[in-house]
């Protein structure tokens, strides 16, 4: 076992060292490709540049005609003003996103375990029918969703928003975990079952302890999706003071009396949590993308 691991590690190391053959052959081509990539940088960086520099400009200096200039002098007035307007909604978003992410990941993990380790009649059909839920345009369920939330008394509340995010998050988290658990040998589950553990017990004592990477992947994916949501926040909660930060940012942007650099500071504030999560855990984010796309 350990010998095998070392060999594969050695192979991996060798593979990493050797540059792709045609790159090895074309030093010229490599330079050319690099130049192309460098050319793409301004296109990708420009919105970030404008957003960040504008956020740190003084109100007097925040003229749209000097948009591309660096902030001079540096000022936190824009950030401060944007924060004073957005902070209640920022808190709403936090209160919404944490439970919604945790609950939908837990449910997805259990479903993924069931679907990857037990095959039963109709399991594939059930799974496919659930997956449809992650693709539908939510516009087509808004009316009954509002009626339902009114019926259970959660309309206009953050718990109502959490419920909606959890339910519509189940398909994607189930998919991510199902694809993740495929790599865990079935023998492990069978061994536990021979030892007399039931399905739930096996999940808790065998599967859950090895699920941390899966939870990171599903968690960051759900965190990003739910934080960035706009439509549900708008429809489930009509009251602007309870709405999530994306809805508040949109309102701020439509306010004529607010200077544009304050709006940029607001965009920075609203984008920061998912941006930082991505910068810190980017690898897992990419895994979520690729394993979250149906395979």
């Amino acid at each position: 076992m350990s010998a095998l691991a070392t060999t594969s590690r050695r192979v991996a190391r060798r593979r990493r060292k050797a540059p792709p053959a045609h790159v090895r052959h074309g030093r010229h081509a490599r330079r050319w490709q690099f130049a192309l990539l460098i050319l793409m940088v301004p296109f990708f960086a420009a919105p970030f540049y404008v957003m960040i520099t504008a956020a740190f400009k003084t109100p007097a200096h925040a003229d749209v005609l000097t948009m591309w200039q660096l902030p001079h002098p540096l000022s936190f007035d824009g950030i401060r003003e944007a924060w004073s307007k957005l902070s209640p909604n920022f808190v709403n978003s936090v209160i919404m996103v944490v439970p919604a992410t945790v609950i939908s990941s837990l449910i997805g993990s259990f479903n993924g375990y069931l679907l990857s380790k037990f095959t039963f009649r109709l399991s594939n059909l059930m799974f496919t029918l659930m997956l449809v839920g992650m693709f539908i345009p939510y516009q087509s369920i808004l009316i009954p969703m509002v009626k339902f939330l009114q019926f259970v008394g959660l309309y206009g509340t953050i718990p109502g928003l959490i419920l909606v995010h959890v339910v519509y998050g189940i398909p994607i988290t189930t998919l991510i975990f199902r694809n993740y658990y495929v790599s865990i040998p079935r023998a492990l589950v069978e061994a536990a079952s021979i030892d007399g553990a039931g399905i739930v017990r096996t999940y808790r004592s065998v599967i859950l302890p090895v699920s941390i990477p899966g939870f990171v992947v599903a968690g960051i994916f759900q965190f990003t999706n739910i934080w960035n949501d706009f439509l549900f926040g708008l429809v489930v909660i009509p009251n602007p003071t309870i709405q999530p930060v994306t809805a508040a940012l949109n309102n701020l942007s439509g306010t004529q009396t607010v200077n544009w650099n304050v709006v940029m500071a607001g965009a920075l504030i609203a984008a920061l949590p998912t941006g930082l999560a991505y910068l810190g855990l980017g690898r897992f984010f990419v895994q979520g993308l690729t394993s979250g796309s149906v395979k």
Binding site: F44, V64, F230, T246, M264, L279
Partner: peptide, 23 residues
């Protein structure tokens, strides 16, 4: 490069939309 090109995908459409509006 991978990090930069994928960064926009992690951000809210509202935040980026607001920035593009000014651009």
């Amino acid at each position: 490069f991978r990090g930069l090109f994928l960064l926009p995908y992690a951000l809210s459409f509202i935040a980026t939309g607001v920035v593009w509006r000014w651009l």
